[in-house]
Simulated assay, not measured.
Amino acid sequence: MDTIEFLKELSNYNSVSGYEQNLSKYIHNVFQKYTDDITYDKLGSLIAIKNGEKNYQNIKIMLAAHIDEIGLMVTGIAENGSIKFTSVGGVDPRTLVAQEVIIHSEKEIYGVIGTLPPHLQDSDSKDNAFKMEDLYIDIGYDEVKAKELISIGDIITIKREFKVLESNTVTSKSLDDKAGVATLLECVKELKKLKHQADVYNVFTVQEEVGTRGAITSTYKIDPDIGIAIDVGFGKTPELEDADSIKMGKGPAITLGGNIHPQLRKKLIVIAEKYNIPYQTELDPGPTGTDGRSIQISRAGIPTLVISIPLRYMHTSVETINIDDIKNTAKLIARFISEIDSNNLEGYLCY
């Protein structure tokens, strides 16, 4: 399946944290063509296993990309029929004004997010950012009809059409981290061309945006020798300093920080340079805001890497990414996996 086509399908699915089931089924159907076994953990994360060549150590490498997205949830219906809501995950209210939305009730209900027009705001309010409680969804119905169609707790997503821009770049909602999911598909395709000893556990984690929960349970279930979180990083825009961002189209960023196993990181860099795969460095001295932080401290501790795909406008409905970065990330991971075997694994895991 073409990378852009797959990423478009992923983005079009509603997969707000805690409500990822339909997307899991779609990913299951795609990956069963490329992997040897598919299972789930008890929280709902999907695990697609591609077996390696038989080896006495039974090496396990876990690749994690989260499938959940940020979204909204209905909290109330006002007397005039407008819908009040709250966030699921890190939603910035400033990005919501005038957005089209879909309320996922028994059937999809379309609406728009409105607020007080600027003409009616007092002078003190005009320069202030809107808060979540200032916003509402207008679906066109009065209170009685709205309550027939919509329930408290219904999930809401932004209605956004996937678009292809110039220079092999695309934009849509929820490319964080559906770009990571697309990377795993490209990676298993690459692995079909290579020999590898390790069994590769492609894990599509749930509820990352509300606390990296799926990574906790899936890592505990698998107990891998190496864990790699594939997520997105802050793509360079004019207002960002170079130290705080990574450049679009310049390859994946290999994270450096306390969450990262130093010897495995060095090996990634050797691989990138050996195969002329472009890469960047991302600094994150803390636990990282990815599944990597939960993978690392699971069980007795898992040697962990985090690889970031540059993405602009994170946690908005116009997230933007370069397809070449996805493909280069996949190549880097596949080549790394192909060079891990029973003769060198112990040496790489030493500090």
Rank of each mutant, 00 (worst) to 15 (best):
I297G: 09
D122W: 00
Y275H: 06
A129W: 03
Q57P: 00
V200D: 02
K173G: 01
Q197E: 15
K274Q: 12
N12D: 13
H28Q: 11
S174D: 07
V181K: 03
V112P: 00
I277R: 04
N29T: 14
M62L: 10
I230F: 03
L149P: 00
K159A: 15
S11I: 01
K33L: 09
D154R: 09
V16C: 08
Y34T: 02
K60G: 07
K266P: 00
E143I: 10
D127S: 15
E186F: 00
I307K: 01
I271V: 14
Y136I: 12
T86G: 02
E319M: 10
E161S: 14
I295A: 07
T35H: 01
Q197V: 11
G286R: 13
D2F: 00
I216A: 10
I102L: 07
E20N: 04
G286S: 10
A48N: 03
I155D: 02
S167K: 11
Y26A: 05
Q57E: 14
I27T: 04
T288K: 03
E143F: 09
D341Y: 00
D127T: 11
E108S: 15
E186N: 10
Q21F: 04
P93F: 11
N328E: 11
F204V: 14
Y141K: 09
S123T: 12
Y220I: 12
A330E: 03
G286E: 07
G81Q: 13
K42C: 08
T237K: 15
R335G: 01
T219L: 04
Y275V: 13
H104Y: 02
V200G: 06
T95M: 01
T288N: 01
D223V: 12
G249L: 11
T219S: 11
I309N: 05
G235R: 09
R312I: 12
A78W: 00
Q197Y: 11
S15L: 08
A253L: 04
I49G: 05
E143V: 14
S245T: 10
S125R: 14
L345V: 08
E108N: 15
I139M: 09
G114Q: 05
A65L: 07
K189G: 02
A300G: 06
K131F: 02
Y348K: 11
T95W: 02
I302H: 12
S15P: 09
N128H: 05
F336H: 06
L96S: 06
E161I: 13
M1P: 06
H104M: 09
Y56C: 06
V91F: 05
E239L: 03
I61K: 07
N12Q: 07
I323H: 03
L23S: 10
K25W: 02
A272Y: 02
Q197A: 10
I295H: 09
K331D: 05
V318S: 12
Y201N: 13
S123D: 09
R293I: 05
L116R: 13
A334W: 00
P285F: 08
A253I: 13
P303C: 14
I4M: 09
K107M: 10
K60E: 06
K145D: 14
V210H: 03
G251P: 11
Q121K: 15
I230G: 07
E241V: 00
S342M: 05
T3C: 10
A146K: 04
V232R: 04
T320M: 09
H315I: 13
S24G: 03
K193T: 15
M314P: 00
D341H: 13
G214E: 05
I152T: 07
S317K: 14
G90N: 13
